[in-house]
């Protein structure tokens, strides 16, 4: 009896151990691809497992593209939590790659100190920048608020009730870049329009479609006929609610129109891959340091309505050429500085 019991304890302990390793993945199990005759390497570190996030998928795509162009090998370190981010950065620095790339604001802390200790290593942070930026750290950030404003213009023109909503993951300053400018854009074309944000929250705010759907239903129930999604993995839940309630929605980061045909007007696009590979190319060519900001002018953000192939995008805005014309005009105004979009992060 004792024997089987011990066996069972061992078996279950071993199960837990192997499973936690399998489930975490990160913290030191890098996956590599490609070979590098040049000896150049790019290491990309993500704050979360990539699978949960279209944004991180774009980050991987951009780093892979840049690696191919400059003939470097590419390695991906996926982190599971803040402590594994620091461990992954340590491991990356020890490998002495051409550049260590960190993606998202989760790296602000580590990248404000670690680059100073490794002065001859070059670092790149995508989508954020620490307050005290070391000289060997390059930052890439985006003006998401400019694209969200354009989406708001479309919403203002297409909404019949003038009542708009946004279902966002969390009530945080960064996420407000998808909320406040959206409502401001709508107000610029329809001064009487009103906007209400609701937040997913809970224990898994970035991947809880059930709660996201519930929030969208609440907004639609109160008269909103355009409900934009800014809930990451919860976005499809918002689209479902819109489809069932006769409302329209907006996607984020990538073209999500095909997820719910006929119900998504457009997307607030962020060309993370484009900006990231450009920055990596610059660093490899010796142009390191500073902050590179990608807005509408640089083509780093946008909406599908601006693309030449909008007709095949599956987005419903394609059926409204007058809206597309207006969006292009507002884009030109923003690029020329005639319209300034307030940045919720700056306020």
């Amino acid at each position: 009896m004792l024997h089987t019991r011990e066996l069972a304890v061992l078996a279950s302990a071993a199960t837990v151990l192997s499973l936690s390793l399998a489930a975490c993945g990160g913290g030191g199990s890098p996956s590599a691809s490609g070979t590098a005759p040049s000896g150049k390497t790019i290491i990309l570190i993500t704050p979360n497992p990539v699978g949960t996030d279209s944004f991180l998928q774009l980050g991987v795509k951009g780093a892979e593209a840049a690696a191919k162009e400059i003939g470097a090998s590419f390695k991906l370190y996926e982190s599971k939590d803040p402590s594994s981010i620091a461990q992954n950065v340590d491991a990356a620095v020890r490998a002495k790659p051409t550049v260590v790339v960190g993606i998202s604001f989760s790296f602000d802390d580590v990248f404000s100190t670690v680059p100073k200790q490794h002065a001859d290593q070059r670092f790149l942070e995508i989508d954020s920048c620490p307050k005290a930026q070391p000289s060997n750290l390059t930052c890439v950030s985006f003006k998401e608020h400019e694209a969200a404003y354009l989406a708001g213009v479309e919403a203002g023109l297409l909404s019949k009730s003038g009542s708009l909503g946004v279902v966002a993951a969390l009530d945080s300053p960064f996420i407000h870049r998808w909320i406040d400018p959206f409502f401001a854009g709508a107000k610029s074309v329809n001064p009487s329009s009103t906007g209400t944000p609701l937040y997913v929250g809970g224990s898994n705010p970035f991947s809880d479609p059930a709660r996201a759907k519930s929030q969208a239903q609440t907004l639609i129930g109160r008269g909103a006929d355009v409900v934009a999604a800014a809930a990451s993995g919860g976005n499809p839940g918002v689209f479902e609610a819109a489809a069932a309630g006769g409302a329209k929605s907006f996607g984020v980061d990538v073209n999500q129109c095909a997820l719910s045909p006929g119900n998504v007007i457009d997307n607030v696009i962020k060309h993370v891959d484009v900006a990231e590979s450009a920055a990596i190319r610059d660093i490899a060519a010796g142009k390191a340091g500073g902050v590179k900001v990608y807005g509408l002018a640089e083509g780093g953000v946008g909406v599908n309505a601006l693309d030449a192939d909008v007709a095949s995008s599956g987005c419903t805005v394609a059926a409204s050429p007058e809206v597309i014309a207006k969006v292009k005009q507002v884009r030109d105004d923003i690029v020329a500085g005639r319209v300034t979009v307030a940045d919720p992060l700056a306020g």
């Binding site: 078996a11 199960t15 399998a22």
Partner: peptide, 27 residues
């Protein structure tokens, strides 16, 4: 099987099963 037949600790096995579900479904 693990807890009733082999008398393993139910909490330990459950933690393992919860983690397994997260990793296995993603995979």
């Amino acid at each position: 099987v693990l807890t009733v037949t082999l008398r393993a600790d139910a909490v330990v096995v459950a933690v393992g099963l919860n983690l397994l579900a997260l990793g296995l479904t993603a995979f």
